[in-house]
Computed example of a mutant assay.
Amino acid sequence: MTTADALRAAMVEQLTADGVLTDPAWRAAASAVPRETFLPSFFREVPGSNPTGYEPVHEQDPGWLEAVYTNQTLVTQLDGRTRPDADGPGAVTGSPSSSSTLPSLVLRMWQQLEVDDGQRVLEIGTGTGYSTALGAHRLGSRSVTSIEYDPDVATRAAAAIGKTGYSPTLVVGDGLAGHAAGEPYDRLIATCSVRYVPQPWLFQVRPGGKILATLSGWSFGFGLALLTVTEPGCATGRFLPGYTSFMIARPHDRPPRQSITLMPGDERPTRIDPAAISDWTGGWVAQLAAPSAERLGAGGQQILIDFATGSQARTMPSPDGGWTVIQRGPLRLWDQVESSIEAWQREGSPHQEHFGITIDGDGQRVWLGSKDGPTWRLPV
């Protein structure tokens, strides 16, 4: 057994012991697909750097293979262009724009998709190709179609997938438009996040088929939803337990932000502790309430900046020990967030698994508890 084989076996054993790998078929896929083929190099964060610096790690470097088989996400591209190539620079800065997601999440999502033998899957976001290869091993290459937005990323993924002996259908294009040439699909899985479920997905997946996608936004709230298509263009589903986050699909990313200047505005005491929106689900609820805003800050000192209108809201300590909010602009962002957080808190501040989603001719709506409960519209 080679070192890579031993490390792969150890990773699979650990994921099985942790309860991540529960399906023998996916356990076999994880045991067979060599993750190292898809990660000849990656970026590693430079400890203590500010802004965050990244140094390249290559297959000839000590610790490279061990890192590949550690259950972690490995960044493979910054700012949509910078790669950890062997002849590239040393430490660099930038925003991660492509990565190999931690194996536990990839395998957990494939299992959550509830895919069966003979079913056809459309994967949105090929990335390094590791997830695609797992799907091709489990279902057969002819059953998997994967689409990647970035041509350079797609080229590298295709080469790696070919080295491992799989031959799924690989497409370069806008994953938000799906791939109509291959429809209908039984399942769709997205390895990027989206602000709303794109309409083409709802028509390319057959009625009764399932869509697994992470809903996110410009305030970095995330919720993983499993939907069943009820008829062309319509679906319903629930958000799943756990904590899932992905880079947002580039067409859904926020507009470029100019430097922020905080302006004076109307002041009043807050009705909620602003730290409530630092909670995983609380921050997501705040994002549902103000979908065109970006959230900055931490703890009790929060800042909301709306990209559509320039509206602002920020919280600051009050002399009496409470919190004051200062709001400016046509949207009262904190009013919207505050009302939504209060509705969530009245229900006991539950995790996202208590939320559902309905998509029909009346739009896309997230609801809490039941369809008659508190409701928020997604920014379609």
Rank of each mutant, 00 (worst) to 15 (best):
K163A: 14
T164M: 12
Y166L: 06
S167P: 02
S167I: 07
P168A: 12
P168C: 12
P168K: 11
T169N: 06
T169W: 03
L170F: 09
L170H: 05
L170T: 07
L170I: 14
V171G: 02
V171Y: 05
V172E: 11
G173M: 13
G173E: 12
D174Y: 13
G175M: 11
G175K: 06
L176Q: 10
A177H: 11
H179G: 01
A180C: 06
A181T: 03
G182L: 10
G182H: 05
E183A: 00
E183S: 00
Y185H: 04
Y185T: 01
Y185K: 03
D186E: 09
D186L: 05
L188G: 02
I189V: 15
I189Q: 01
A190C: 15
T191F: 08
C192F: 11
C192L: 12
S193A: 15
V194R: 00
V194G: 00
V194N: 00
R195A: 13
Y196H: 14
Y196S: 10
Y196K: 05
Y196P: 01
V197W: 02
P198N: 13
Q199D: 14
Q199P: 03
Q199K: 10
P200C: 09
P200I: 14
W201S: 02
F203T: 01
F203C: 00
F203H: 09
F203E: 02
Q204A: 08
Q204L: 13
Q204T: 10
V205N: 00
V205T: 02
V205W: 00
V205I: 08
R206K: 15
R206H: 11
P207S: 11
P207M: 03
P207W: 02
G208T: 05
G208D: 03
G208M: 08
G208K: 04
G209N: 02
G209W: 00
K210L: 14
K210Q: 15
L212G: 07
L212T: 07
L212W: 09
T214H: 02
T214D: 05
L215S: 03
S216H: 10
G217K: 04
S219W: 08
F220T: 05
G221H: 07
F222H: 12
L224V: 02
L224W: 02
A225W: 00
A225E: 00
L226P: 01
L226W: 04
L227P: 01
L227I: 07
T228R: 08
T228Q: 09
V229R: 03
E231A: 15
P232W: 04
C234D: 04
C234Y: 06
C234P: 01
T236F: 01
G237E: 06
R238S: 09
R238I: 06
R238T: 12
F239N: 01
L240A: 09
G242R: 06
G242P: 04
G242I: 07
G242K: 04
Y243V: 07
Y243Q: 13
S245Q: 10
S245L: 14
F246I: 04
F246S: 02
A249Y: 07
A249T: 05
R250E: 15
R250V: 15
P251Q: 10
H252M: 08
H252E: 04
H252S: 04
D253T: 15
D253L: 08
D253C: 13
R254I: 12
P255H: 11
P255W: 14
P256N: 13
P256L: 14
P256M: 14
P256D: 15
R257V: 14
S259W: 14
I260W: 11
I260D: 07
T261H: 09
